[in-house]
Design a protein around this nucleic acid. Structure first.
Length: 478
RNA sequence: GGCGGCAUCGCCAAGUGGUAAGGCACGGGUUUGCAAAACCCGCAUCCCCGGUUCGAAUCCGGGUGCCGCCUCCA
């Protein structure tokens, strides 16, 4: 079985056939650490995590790099020159602190969220600001090879007309760009489409020395420099959100190939954006969610993860809280089955050969979906169907162990079944606790009306009480 | 203006030539003091019009509608 992936470079499905047999090297465009990452960011990062898990499971040696962009990008100006303001810097001014402090703070938030969503750890998380010399070196190579030029006191630009393949990824060839020209002319540049590699702007807070003066690197060079350092000039997979296609990834290709370090990435994968309530995510619309927001609403990390991976990455996803609620129920059923199987797995029952074979064919169907360009919806369909069969007639003993083994296999990709629930520290008010106690007393005395009215009372206070074999449990209604 | 994507049950969503997976919701049932959870049963002919084919949700042509990128953006 071969993993087939949609390569957005040549717009077709290709077999994953690594440059180095048996070894896959992958670069995921990671977070820009100037604010809390949102669920849309994580949908894209999760595509990288899913890939990582599949590649591991298929037995490849993996090198997985996720970059941390701690030099921000321009926020203003449609002129690609040095007059824009860095997002990190803007954030720093607003918060009145050092931009590096902000970057470290949000880098930490990213890692926390990634843990909450059960990401497998990448092998490297290189920071842009730790790789300024590498970037400078690459810019020098580009100048040497005629792909870049310095504008005295302004910076260094990439000469797009020197790179024939410009536009190969996005379709934004120079011809197309010129016919649809919306970029203001800046006569310091040879072509309006030339993009900055190094910028000089004394107002900028983050500054480094370079052969062209004190300044800061352009928007795209970090990924070219860092992927080269950690993965070499030719590697297997490069991922990002769809908005990265142009200009970011297009420019990366121009830089890396132009610098002569290799072919650069063979397979490009781009996640479609996530919408919220059918619209683009926006703070002003109230459609902006961070992982923290959802956890504060009482959702588990694995529920959020399940929701974000349950749609195909190449399809726009419409996130809604109602949808998340439904997906939380779906994953809960899977976890309940897991728990049931765990409790009976020790029982003295033998193997069920027929079940074992049937599980194996389900596993193959599951894998086939995953291998087909990460068809998670299809794979989850297969899993739920099997779950229903297992729930109908719960296997015991060794057979239960076999069923668990099957679930574990699926969960190596999904990462939602065998993770512990995070129980938030939470206590009821004394009054609410006494209602629960009173209700228990009433139930002892078979005073059902009183018991039920107490439960209604709690429900109005947002507390859901459920009776189980070990007495009542309560949860907050989310 | 340039480049690209999508339209399948109330909602989410698989299926890409062989006669519509799955989840949520909903209805009925088992269980429960009642609930909840769990389990069982039920629940669509695929935007429109033409065409190709023995056969199309799946291919082709034409509509209609929606969306993304082209500027920082996952």
């Amino acid at each position: 079985m071969t993993l087939r992936l949609w390569n957005s470079l040549d717009k077709k499905l290709v077999d994953l056939d690594p440059v180095i047999p048996g070894e896959v090297r992958m670069y995921n465009c990671g977070p820009t650490v100037y604010s809390d990452p949102h669920i849309g960011n994580f949908r894209s990062f999760l595509m990288g995590d899913l890939l990582r898990r599949v590649i591991d499971q298929r037995g490849f040696k993996t090198t997985h790099v996720v970059n941390i962009t701690d030099v921000g990008h321009l926020t203003t100006d449609d002129v690609a020159d040095a007059s824009g303001e860095d997002k990190l810097e803007k954030e720093a001014r607003e918060q009145g602190i050092d931009p590096f402090e902000i970057a470290r703070k949000y880098e930490e938030v990213f890692h926390t969220n990634a843990r909450q969503l059960n990401f497998r750890l990448a092998h490297e998380y290189p920071r842009a600001t730790d790789h300024i010399p590498e970037m400078i070196e690459m810019i020098e190579k580009l100048i040497e090879r005629g792909h870049a030029y310095e504008v005295e006191g302004v910076g260094v630009y990439f000469r797009v007309h020197s790179f024939e393949k410009y536009g190969c990824l996005s379709g934004n060839t120079l011809e197309n760009l010129e016919s649809g020209s919306r970029i203001a002319v800046d006569d310091r540049k040879e072509s309006p489409h030339d993009f900055a590699l190094w910028k000089i702007d004394e107002k900028h807070l983050m500054q480094w020395d370079s052969p062209w003066g004190r300044g800061f690197p352009g928007w795209h060079i970090e990924c070219s420099a860092m992927s080269y350092k950690y993965l070499g000039g030719t590697f297997d997979i490069h991922t990002g959100g769809e908005d990265n296609v142009f200009p970011h990834h297009e420019c990366e290709i121009a830089q890396s190939v132009g610098a002569g370090v290799g072919e650069f990435a063979r397979i490009w994968m781009h996640a479609r954006h996530l919408l919220v309530d059918g619209r683009k995510m926006a703070k002003s619309e109230g459609t902006f969610f961070t992982i923290k927001d959802l956890i504060e609403r009482g959702f588990q990390g694995y529920e959020i993860r399940y929701s974000l991976i349950s749609n195909h990455y190449r399809q726009p996803m419409n996130f809604t809280l109602e949808g998340l609620e439904g997906e939380a129920k779906a994953v809960s059923r899977l976890r309940v089955l897991r728990e049931k199987l765990e409790t009976v797995a020790d029982e003295d029952f033998g193997r069920d050969q027929e079940l074992l074979e049937s599980l194996d064919s389900t596993r193959q169907a599951f894998d086939a979906c995953i291998d087909d360009d990460l068809n998670l919806s299809g794979a989850l369909g297969v899993l739920h169907e099997r779950t229903r069969l297992l729930g109908r007639e719960l296997p015991r003993g060794v057979a239960a162990g076999d069923a668990l083994e099957f679930l574990r296999h699926c969960d190596e990709i999904l990462g939602v079944l065998f993770v512990e629930e995070v129980v938030a520290e939470d206590t009821l008010s004394g009054e609410q606790q006494s209602w629960i106690d009173q209700r228990e007393a009433a139930r002892e005395n078979r005073e059902w009306d009183l018991a039920d009215s107490l439960r209604d009372q709690l429900k109005e206070a947002g507390i859901l009480v459920e009776d189980g074999p070990d007495g009542p449990t309560w949860t907050r209604i989310r």
